[in-house]
Structures are given as structure tokens and as C-alpha cells.
Design a protein around this nucleic acid. Structure first.
Lengths: 161, 161
DNA sequence: CATAGAGTGTTATATCATAACACCATGCTG
DNA sequence: CAGCATGGTGTTATGATATAACACTCTATG
């Protein structure tokens, strides 16, 4: 998806913004939570809770329990630092934390990458349609399955982070 | 949600349309699949696969295995007779089978009911935004959490089917 | 009625998520 | 600084959702 890029920069950037946001809010971005955030950001593919668990166990050598990861993810989602992709039971780093936004994602079925859409027109259309039906919106979820630009090119398929 | 209504009619109607559609397509709506469809339609709340399994076991007295239900649901979803609500891991009868449409739902967090939205403006906005990013859409999913009109009235809460 | 293909049953197992409770770390209060 | 309250983490167990592999059965069709 995002073509070749310096992903280390993505990660560093995400952590820096997370530090700033949490400091600002008085939220405690503990080392465990920070580490989980880093692991969520290890690519642009949504990662399952148990994949992150394996990372903690194997890459860090710290055997961890599922709850450890789920609790960290819960915190990160609450803080808007991570989104949950419902249709994949997986988590992905938020591209624009701080800015409150709906979770809108384009999920490529070929490479597995997901990018945030967060298009105001989509959000408007949803809110308009809902309000016409008297429905009070709390949290809109949009997850579009399909094929990303890179994977539409027949040759250089299956790119990852 | 849909106020008081003759739900038996909803069910009968859904089954009739399913019969017709499957006949037309040469798809085999077996008695098991038909029964699962009926159980999915037992209300306007999305139902989990294991809830349906319990119905089969308890209401019908036929002890069934999870796979039995999952296979029937898979068929029904393929035929567009049932939708899966990703954010609930649950299934709901399709209001307009036959008409190919995106899965757009308003899910009430108070009563648990879900209604199809299927608003063309929402679909257009998604397709426009996706296509601007070169993303090829295969299946858009929209699931809006919030509060339905009935549950916004303070008194008569918690309505069901 | 023989047979191929789709459907179903059965058993086992994988994957995703949470409950209950104990312990520890941090920061505040007196 | 001691004590304490709060929130974070560890541990164990369990619940909820979903699929794999393989055998048997039914149904449509020649």
C-alpha cells in the first residue's frame, strides 16, 4: 500500500504523538502499553491480539497472558491511539490520533494492509441518513473490503508493511 | 424499533421470498437451512451462531453441532438472505433479499435491534472516496452503533422483536 | 437403479475474549 | 516519611466464536 517507506519513522512518529497526547491528557502510557502500541504499529496490517501476545512472548522473552494484551489494547483504543477492525478481529495504529474521527478503513484482501479513509463525506452521509430515521449515532464503523492500488497491478503483488 | 408489529408476518414473508429466490436460482434451500433462516428471523436483533444452535437443540430437540449452523449460515449469507454483523459476531435476516446491496446497519445499543440502512448516498460516498484513492471496492460494510428512536424515549425502553 | 455431487453428522481443535482475584507500583495525604 | 488509595499488572481458569478432517446420506439425473 503506502509504497516503500521508512516504516521505522511511522513507528517513532506514532510513539512520539502517543507520548504527547497521553501527557496532555494525564493518561498513563506505561511501558507495557507503549510496547503494545509499538507492536501494533509493526506494520500497516491489522494485527490480532494473539499475534501481539506472541511478539511479547517471543521477541521480548516476556511470557504474557492474553488479558495483558487485551487490557493494553483497551486503553489504546480508548485513547484513540489504536482502532479495532471488527471484520478482522484485529487492531491497527491510528494514523491521526488526537483528531476525533470515525473509524473508516479500506482493507485490502490481497496484501492485508488497511488504511484509514476518514472521509467527511462518508461520515456526513451516514449521519444524515441515520438522523432521517431518528437514529442517534454514537459510533459509525466503516470497513471496506477490496483491493488496494498496489495489488491491482498484476506483477508486484503481496506487499507488506 | 419497528414499533409493535406482527412479527409472524415478517418471518413468513422472509421464508416465502427465500423460497422464491432459491427456486429461481436453483439454490437448494433445504429444510435445515430454511429452519436456520427462520431462527435468524426470530427477532430483529442479530443472533449469534450459538444462540441459533441452542434453538435447534432446545426448541427442536435436535442436538446439533456448531458446524451445522455455521454451514447453513454460510449458505444463507452467500444467497443474500442473511447478513453478518461483524461488530457483534451475529447474524440478521436481510430485509431486501434479491436486491443486491451493501450491508449497512443501524445497531441500537439499548435494545439490541438492528435495521438495515442501505442508503445509496452512503454507498456513493464510500465508492467515491475509495475510488479517489485508487481502491477497488468489493464489499463495503457499515455498522452504526447508537440509539434507535424508541430507545431515545426515556420511558418505554428495551423493546425487542 | 447407479452414481456423482452436494449436504449433513461427528469429533476434535483452533481462535478470540473475559472473569475473578491477588499482588505491586505510583502518587497523594497526613 | 508512613500509610493508604487507586490504578496497573500477573495468574489461572473459563467462556465465546469459528473451522478442519473425514465419513455417511440424500437428491437429482442419466
Amino acid at each position: 500500500m503506502l509504497h516503500a517507506h521508512d516504516h521505522a519513522h511511522c513507528i517513532a512518529d506514532a510513539l512520539t504523538r502517543a507520548d504527547a497526547l497521553c501527557a496532555e491528557r494525564g493518561a498513563r502510557l506505561t511501558s507495557l502499553r507503549r510496547r503494545v502500541l509499538e507492536l501494533v504499529w509493526s506494520g500497516h496490517q491489522p494485527r490480532g491480539a494473539y499475534a501481539i501476545l506472541d511478539d511479547l512472548t517471543q521477541r521480548d522473552g516476556k511470557p504474557a497472558a492474553p488479558l495483558t494484551v487485551y487490557r493494553a489494547l483497551e486503553f489504546l483504543v480508548e485513547q484513540g491511539l489504536v482502532h479495532r477492525i471488527e471484520s478482522l478481529n484485529a487492531y491497527i495504529g491510528c494514523a491521526e490520533p488526537g483528531a476525533m474521527h470515525a473509524g473508516q478503513f479500506l482493507v485490502c484482501e490481497a496484501c492485508g494492509n488497511a488504511v484509514e479513509l476518514d472521509d467527511p463525506r462518508v461520515d456526513d452521509a451516514i449521519r444524515t441518513a441515520a438522523s432521517e430515521r431518528g437514529f442517534q449515532v454514537r459510533r459509525p464503523t466503516v470497513e471496506v473490503r477490496g483491493t488496494c492500488p498496489d495489488c491491482q497491478k498484476p506483477d508486484l503483488q503481496e506487499k507488506s508493511p
